[in-house]
């Protein structure tokens, strides 16, 4: 089961700010989802190798060849802030 603390923790990791009402709501909703998925653990999987990937494909590879990059102006075009050809990010360390 999950409680409000788990939701607050997950929201913190995702850098989401939730108000009290949202926390209550998500605790309930995520709890329901987990309960639903939990049904799977009723299945006996003792002899089943854990699945890492569900699509039957492997080794999709490309040769080591350089392709043209984006023009820098285009790379920077979506950035909210830029300086001297760099993306500019707000300060990293909190006080």
């Amino acid at each position: 089961m999950i409680d409000k603390k788990d939701v607050e923790y997950a929201a913190g990791l995702a850098q989401l700010k939730l108000d009290e009402e949202e926390k209550e709501k998500y605790t309930e909703q995520i709890g329901e989802i987990l309960n639903y998925v939990d049904k799977l653990s009723e299945l006996d999987t003792d002899d089943v190798v854990p699945t890492a990937y569900t699509v039957p494909m492997k080794n999709v590879l490309r040769e080591d060849q350089v392709k043209e990059s984006l023009l820098r102006e285009k790379s920077l075009a979506n950035a909210p802030d830029e300086k001297d050809g760099h993306f500019r990010a707000p300060k990293i360390m909190s006080d």
């Binding site: 392709k67 990059s69 820098r72 920077l76 001297d84 050809g85 760099h86």
Partner: peptide, 16 residues
């Protein structure tokens, strides 16, 4: 991706 790994290029030139 196919961007070059060359060192010392102008900032953000090797991006896609």
């Amino acid at each position: 991706c196919g961007c070059s790994t060359e060192f010392g290029k102008e900032p953000n030139e090797n991006t896609c």
